[in-house]
Each structure stands twice: as C-alpha cells, then as structure tokens.
C-alpha cells in the first residue's frame, strides 16, 4: 500500500495495487484499500440482515398472534409452476412428501436465520454464504420470477454471496478475523474455507 498524491493536487489517499493474471492475461489495477474494505463490510451487513430478517419473519407467529407458522407447501406445490421441469418436479415432490415438507418447513427459517447471523457477524462466513447461495438457487429458479428478465434480486443475491466467499468477508471486522489468528485454524488451514 502506498499514499498517492493524485495529480499533484495534494489529495492523498491509500491506494493498493493488485497485480495478478486472469485467464492467462496480466491484470494490474489500483484500488482504494479503505473503500474496498468498507464495501465488503457494508455488503456483509446488508446481506446478513436480509437473511436474518427472512428467517425471523417466518417465526413471527411466536410473538405476533396474527402471523401464521411458516409453511412452504403453498410455494412448493403452486408457486413453482414456472420453473424448469426438472426442478418443478422435485419441488412438488418435496411439497407433497410429508417428512420432506416437515424438514423443509423446519430448515428454511432456521437456515436463513443462521446464514444471516453468520454473515452479519462474520462467523463461518464462507460456510454461511455457501448455503445462502444454495438456498437462493432454489428461490431463483423455483420462483422463476423472470418478468423483468433473468437477472433479478435472487440471482444478484447469489452473486453477492459468491463475492463474500471470494473476499473472505468475515476477516474484516468479523469474528473470522480473530478465529483465523488462532492456533487451531493455523494448524488446520482447510478451516479457512469455512471461515474467511
């Protein structure tokens, strides 16, 4: 990192230079270290809350009488008709198979909550983000909400989760930043693919 005096104007900012190769071609560009870090944390907090809320609101019946317990059967059986056939068939089967529907009704709210908390606090960030993208994969293609095109919020959510994984976003102001300095993680480097 260096301090740049941009165009001699006396404006100094911390600039990092990234040098690498992308598919065999050299790449070199400068970026602002503070802004890059800021955006990683900013993204993590927003995506984390997105999923924390998605999980919490499915438990709202526990403290708000008018709310109903979460039930995925309506979406599985009737909300996925626009999905590709192979996925629609699977989701209908899941929605009409008692034990699998029960597991789904249990796993989606809890999964969303845990994924959101992991991303929000930067704890097991890569693991949480992987399962966040996994869930969104089914929401994206299952709902097939392509009225405004194939690039919609769910697909962009998958991409955001992928970016959190690539950046190892939990290392910036996150629990993973502390965990990765522990002896256990240093002695078991594979765990960094779950943290980060």
């Amino acid at each position: 990192m260096r301090l740049d005096d941009q165009e001699g104007l006396g404006v100094r900012q911390m600039v990092d230079t990234l040098e690498t190769t992308l598919l065999g071609r050299p790449v070199r560009f400068e970026l602002s270290g503070p802004w890059t870090s800021y955006m990683v944390v900013f993204t993590r907090l927003l995506v984390g809350w997105w999923f924390v809320y998605a999980g919490l609101e499915k438990y709202a019946n526990l403290w708000y009488a008018p709310a109903e317990a979460f039930d995925a059967s309506g979406w599985l059986l009737h909300g996925t008709a626009g999905a590709p056939g192979w996925l629609h068939g699977f989701l209908v089967w899941a929605g009409s198979t008692g034990w699998l529907l029960a597991a789904t009704n249990y796993a989606i709210p809890l999964g969303e909550l845990l994924i959101g908390l992991g991303v929000l606090f930067g704890f097991a960030t890569r693991l949480a983000a992987f399962f966040g993208a996994f869930l969104l994969f089914f929401f994206y293609l299952g709902s097939a909400d392509f009225t405004n095109g194939y690039v919609n919020g769910n697909l962009l959510g998958i991409i955001l989760f992928m970016q959190l994984i690539v950046f190892g976003a939990g290392r910036i102001w996150g629990v993973d930043g502390y965990l990765e300095r522990t002896g256990f993680v240093r002695n078991h480097p594979w765990t960094r693919y779950l943290l980060g």
């Binding site: 999905a83 590709p84 994969f137 194939y150 594979w190 693919y193």
Partner: peptide
C-alpha cells in the same frame, strides 16, 4: 425457461462443485 434456466443452473452448479472441491482439496 427450460433452456435458459437449465443453462444458468448448470453454471451455478459448477461454481458450487468448485467450492466443495476447494474445501476437500485443502483437507
């Protein structure tokens, strides 16, 4: 949707499998 959705799904599946591969390769 059958065509475009399946193509996108395959692309995302490649990324998912790659992530799993990286973990097990590291182990």
């Amino acid at each position: 949707v059958e065509i475009r959705g399946t193509i996108i799904a395959l692309g995302l599946a490649v990324f998912a499998l790659y992530a799993v591969y990286k973990l097990f390769a590291a182990i």
